[in-house]
Each structure stands twice: as structure tokens, then as C-alpha cells.
Amino acid sequence: MKVAIIHDYLNQYGGAERLLEAICELYPDAPIYTSIYNPDKVQHRFDGRDVRTSFMQRLPGVINHHQVYLPFYTFAFESFDLSGYDLVISSSSAWAKGVKVSPETLHICYCHTPMRFVWQFDDYAKRERIKGPAKAVLPLFLNYVRLWDVKTAQRPDFYVANSQTVRERIARFWQRDAVVINPPVEVSEIPYRGAPRQDFYLWVGRMVPYKRADVAIRAFKELDLPLKVVGTGRDMEALKKMAGPRTEFLGFVPDEQVRELFTQCRAFIQAGAEDFGITPVEAMAGGAPVIAINQYGPAEIVLDGKTGLFFETQTQEALVEAVRRFEADPAKFDSAEIRRYAETFDHQVFLKRFGDYVNQRWEEHTRGKGAPNGERNNVKGEDTKIRV
């Protein structure tokens, strides 16, 4: 079986790129097709892989300023010659799903989310601080991108979503169904010793608006409880100004030390409404209860009253109330039980789930079951969420 892997771009390293690494582990000989690639920006994680870039790789300044080349992506991915491949797996939050394949080729898309800048423009503009003329003009061009997005959403044969939240968006925006297979988390690399928890709370993430570090920092100033803040970003100075005396900014912390913090903290604070949320799962792998916003991914992965508890709105007041509930009875949360639950998200679990799903679809494909591309996987299908 000849396999190709498609990914939006390789000029940053985050959750989507971790997912790509896992897919590459399943298909080590498959080339990666992507719009642009800079090994330094992805921590050289794909050194030795056959990475094939589009014509966009030659555009001036594209690695650091890829957003300004927005009009080129549709052409870049449709220009790839994927003839001769039996199986195409796209890892997509924007463009990769739009590749063209032969009728006899099976195309499975792992979708991180439909395009945020198209379907959630107001939230995206706020998140990226798009203002002035750009905010006024960009929606006009995005009308074209939205039409392209809907059209090309019919190209994959099957969709896999990283969460129920994303599955619902796929159904709402594209009228397609998806199975849910959560992305891999390196649970086995996070130590768990069962030692008593220390007295500090923990927040980890990039300091950008949608992560809502401000909610945690203001809440812990009011609570007068110790909070360690890990991460860097454009909002750091503003966040420091609003912090109380018991909030400690650690800046960049190596992964090994962050994992130690997960094993030590009293609880982990998740104020951002992520599509999934790898970091709170990592915290649970260290045995930490998670105090999380009851929205999107965090609402799916935290078990209220068992592995953590929820607050309902992204406000200082709501988080303060949740922390006080936690402080009233922290002993109810069993770190060993929390760790066991986190293990259901482990990297090896993902490899088996995703590998088995692809193999099942491939067997059906080779037997000639189902309809042609884009017609096998509609919103009227059964509930196909895959979880332990």
C-alpha cells in the first residue's frame, strides 16, 4: 500500500505537529506533502523524513509571515500530484483536506478544526488582534475561501475529529460526520510518584488572549493563593502588572521540569476553552486535579468530581468560586485514579485506535464497500465516537 501524508504547514511546532509525528510513526515510509517547511521551526522533529513542499516554499518571507500569502494556499494544495497513492491521510486545520486524489484512492482526514478564520472570524480576529482596515477587508476575501472550504470538505472519504467539539463543527459547517479519536498525549513520559501534593496551583500555556491566563491571575490575586505561571508570549508584561504577590512567573520551562510541576501542583488551572486540551491531560498524568472551564474540549476530558471540577464562565468570579469549592475538600480527588484516567489518552492508545480505524476503512475500500469519495460519511450516520 502506497501512502502519502498531507499537513497544512511545518513552520511551527504544536499539537497538530505532535499528531503528525504519530501518524508518521504508523507510516514511516510515507512522504509528507506540505505548503512550507522550516526544520528549525519544528525542532527538527521531521529530519530524515521525505518532506515535499509546494511552490510557496520559494516565496519571500513565507516562513515567518505565511499569513500574508493566504490567497496562495488553495492553489498550493491542489497543485500536488498524488496520483499513484493508494491511501492519503491529511492532517488539517485549514488547507490539507483540499488535496485532489484519484477516484480509486482512499482519503482520510484527521481534522483539528475547520478553518477558524473563516467560520469563527470574530473570535479569530480578537485572538490574533486583527484591527482596522485588515479586519474590514479580510472578510471579503474569506467569502471565497469559505466557498472553497465547503467544496473541498466533500473530497475526503472519511473524517476523524480530535474532539466531540470539532465533530460538531464538521457537521455544522460541512454537513459531514466524523469519528472522534483524541490526539496522542505522552502520558508515559510524565512521572507519577503518588507523593503528597504541594501547596501551589499551576497554569501552563502561551501568553496570548484566548488562553485566558488573565482569568487565572486575577482570580488567584483575589484568593491570595500561590500560583505558578509557565510560558511566554506577547501578553506577559500586561499579565505581570495584574498579578498578586503570590503569583510566580517562571517563563520558559523545559518539558522535563514542566512534567515535574504536574506531579507536584495542588491542582492545574485550565481557563482557556480549547478544542481538545493536551496540557490538562498532561497535568492529570501527573496526578493533578484540573479546575477547568466547562466548555469545548475541557468539558469533554475532565470528569467533574473525579478528575477535577468545572467553572461555567471565563471570569475571575467563577474561577474563584470553583477554587474555593476545591479547597473545601481537596482530599476527594484521588491522584492515582486521575493518573489511570489520563492513561486512556496515551500515545500508544492513539496509535492503536487510529491505526485500527484506518485499517478498517482500507479493508472496506479494497472490498469495494461504500460510495465514491465524499459520499460515504454524512451527518446521518451513527454515533461514531471512539473512546475507552
Rank of each mutant, 00 (worst) to 15 (best):
Y9I: 12
Y13K: 00
G14D: 06
R18S: 07
L20T: 14
E21F: 06
E21Q: 15
A22T: 08
C24M: 04
C24H: 01
L26E: 09
T34R: 01
Q43I: 06
H44C: 02
D47I: 00
R49V: 04
Q57I: 09
R58D: 15
P60S: 10
G61I: 13
I63E: 12
N64Q: 13
Q67G: 06
T74G: 08
S83M: 03
G84W: 15
I89Q: 04
I89D: 05
V99Q: 00
K100V: 11
V101M: 09
H107M: 06
T113H: 12
F117W: 09
V118P: 10
D122G: 00
D122E: 15
R129S: 11
G132F: 02
P133L: 13
A134H: 14
K135E: 10
A136I: 07
A136S: 14
V137N: 10
L140N: 14
L142C: 09
R146L: 02
K151D: 11
T152N: 15
Q154P: 13
Q164K: 10
R167F: 13
R167Q: 14
I170F: 12
A171W: 13
A171H: 13
R172H: 11
F173M: 05
Q175D: 14
A178S: 07
V179Q: 05
V179D: 02
V179K: 00
I181L: 03
V185C: 13
E186P: 11
I190H: 05
P191Q: 03
P191C: 03
P196G: 15
D199C: 00
F200M: 10
L202P: 01
V204W: 07
V204N: 04
Y210D: 07
K211A: 05
A213C: 15
I217A: 04
K221V: 10
E222W: 02
E222L: 15
L223C: 13
L223K: 08
L227V: 09
R234F: 04
D235Q: 12
L239K: 11
L239D: 00
K241G: 14
G244E: 01
T247R: 06
E248G: 04
F249V: 06
V253F: 00
Q257L: 07
Q264R: 13
C265I: 08
A267S: 08
A267I: 07
E274F: 01
T279P: 13
P280V: 14
G287D: 01
P289E: 10
N294S: 01
V302M: 09
D304W: 07
G308T: 05
Q314F: 06
Q316D: 11
A318E: 04
V320M: 03
A322C: 10
F326A: 01
E327I: 11
D329I: 00
A331V: 14
S335R: 09
R340L: 12
A342Q: 02
T344N: 14
H347P: 11
Q348Y: 12
G355H: 05
D356K: 11
Q360P: 04
E363M: 02
G368T: 06
A371L: 14
N373V: 09
G374M: 00
E375V: 12
N377I: 07
K380D: 14
